[in-house]
Design a protein around this nucleic acid. Sequence first.
DNA 1: CTGAAAGCGCTAACAA
DNA 2: TTGTTAGCGCTTTCAG
Lengths: 342, 342
Amino acid sequence: MNPRSKNSTRPTIIHVARAAGVSKSTVSRVLQGDAASVKTETRQAVTRAIRKLGYEHNAIASMLRTARTFMVMLITPDIANPFWSEVARGLQDTLERPGYSVVVGNGDRDPQRENAFLKTARRNRFDGIAINPTVIHSRELRAANIPTIILGVRDGFPGMDMIGSDSFQGTFDALTYLFQMGHRRIGFIDGHYNADPGRARYRAYRDFLKQRDLVFDPTLLVEVPFERAGGQRGMRVLLNVAQPPTAIFCSNDILAVAAMQTAQEASLVIPRDLSMIGMDDIYPAAMTMPGLTTMAKPKYEIGCQAAHLLLERIEGKAPREGRRCVLPCKLIERGSVAPPRG
Amino acid sequence: MNPRSKNSTRPTIIHVARAAGVSKSTVSRVLQGDAASVKTETRQAVTRAIRKLGYEHNAIASMLRTARTFMVMLITPDIANPFWSEVARGLQDTLERPGYSVVVGNGDRDPQRENAFLKTARRNRFDGIAINPTVIHSRELRAANIPTIILGVRDGFPGMDMIGSDSFQGTFDALTYLFQMGHRRIGFIDGHYNADPGRARYRAYRDFLKQRDLVFDPTLLVEVPFERAGGQRGMRVLLNVAQPPTAIFCSNDILAVAAMQTAQEASLVIPRDLSMIGMDDIYPAAMTMPGLTTMAKPKYEIGCQAAHLLLERIEGKAPREGRRCVLPCKLIERGSVAPPRG
DNA sequence: CTGAAAGCGCTAACAA
DNA sequence: TTGTTAGCGCTTTCAG
């Protein structure tokens, strides 16, 4: 039954060629859809032979010969993080059409792991890399000598393509929105990693205050790690300052949701007693009660655009210099913001 | 600077061999860590040459020769779904050590796409496949002739390894938990897909009722699609039955969270007026107010175990017949369940 | 312990 | 339009 049972080896183009009474080159041509240079009858004969033998193109052999693998490595800190899994989805969906497969690596903010994936990309001669660099440096990336797109807009990667969202503008707009709702004492729970990417949100906060002639009150700013516990701690701190804020901006939704819950546990009613605004618009943000108002980052689109930029670079259609693509954030109004009381 | 600048080609083992004054075979042996059969001095000479030339092993050529790719294809409906992204994480984390890369495919419950990924796995001679089959059949999987692990416990895949969690037991335990809290009228919002995998939850619900001598009240059961809107609709229906339930079990957390919010919007206080319990324990379940009590599925562990089973199968260490590995669910008590009022 | 040689299955000039 | 030929870079007998 099975054309290739047990210990018989898989058919190759040679077998197909023999069965069709042509040469391997001809088979190769029809395999590549080189319609122009093979007679219709011949092609049909080959196609028939292929089907009869149950032949399956061997991409590995082809890779070796053409030095093209149609493989792309995606390196993010954690694919289980809803932010990155959405980016991954966008990347994969758009790379799928031109026939690329994407391998995903969880770098985990660990130099060892991040580099291990880079090494895999090199050894397997991947055609491209999409990476959110946390510990890896420009030098290593450049040395890999593989077309690369940086996920996130960063300094320190000169000449490389980058794509990200405008955290500065997003933060600024979020704060402006709160201001226009009437808030004047606006708290800021600022998440950070060890390797801090430019502190766009912090700069936006300071710039915003300046523009609105509000004085910077250090008690309204609290720095925490980018995780639930950070949001909880941040809220506890802000709840206990002498003059508490009427609204709080959080660096991302994970912090915001955790902070909001902490406030609710302290019997504050959101948004009546306190307005909350987050950033990213991850999945859970729509699931809180009230829904979290947030500056959405275009995660899926970032993935899609990243794919396009990378594809151009791979195909040599990109300009020599690195490109920066910065997508705007967008306000999603749900229920966590209202004018201040009184 | 760069040892391989511009249009010079990458060094191969031949270059290394020449530089070290040995043959390619020797270099190959060193590369494979075949310590036993190469003199220490020779190995050092080779290593030195490798470093000097900036040689990088070409995995593609190696694959062609050895017919091993160290690539695994993961096919799920949607990697952006928090359930699957956790499974993916587990799979990747454990496949990483033995040197496998995993390509992830979003099958999207679409026959076209699911098959396309399977085809990629075949053409690229992947060593293994991990799949949650939604539309693909056993026959196609078997025809691919690649070691496979089924994600989810299903009928219709005879002889194949499977791993999943015990939805029947989980549902049964969740209902029992509600019963022990004193609930007797327990509603059930049951999600389903077109291709329904056995309806374990439904069977558990019926069995539970029987065991506890409770009569099955069809008005307490509502079937909805597996998405937020389904949860909302389900809750609206249950809120309007003549004798509403005092507790509700939902097929998964997405439904549960949406249902809980809908109840809250209708001014019910959870769990005072109504207890809610979900299943899966996805990320957002911890972020609601109150936190959602749920039967957790061991998502990450499923990924890890899947990797182990697959590895054994790939290495020919697995028994001929298919194995079934069913992991238990675990109750996570948060704040959404309490004894009924009165 | 090391080397020579024969491919793995395909593509891409170059000829015909 | 088709066939011949020479590899792509590595692994792996088999000799030595």
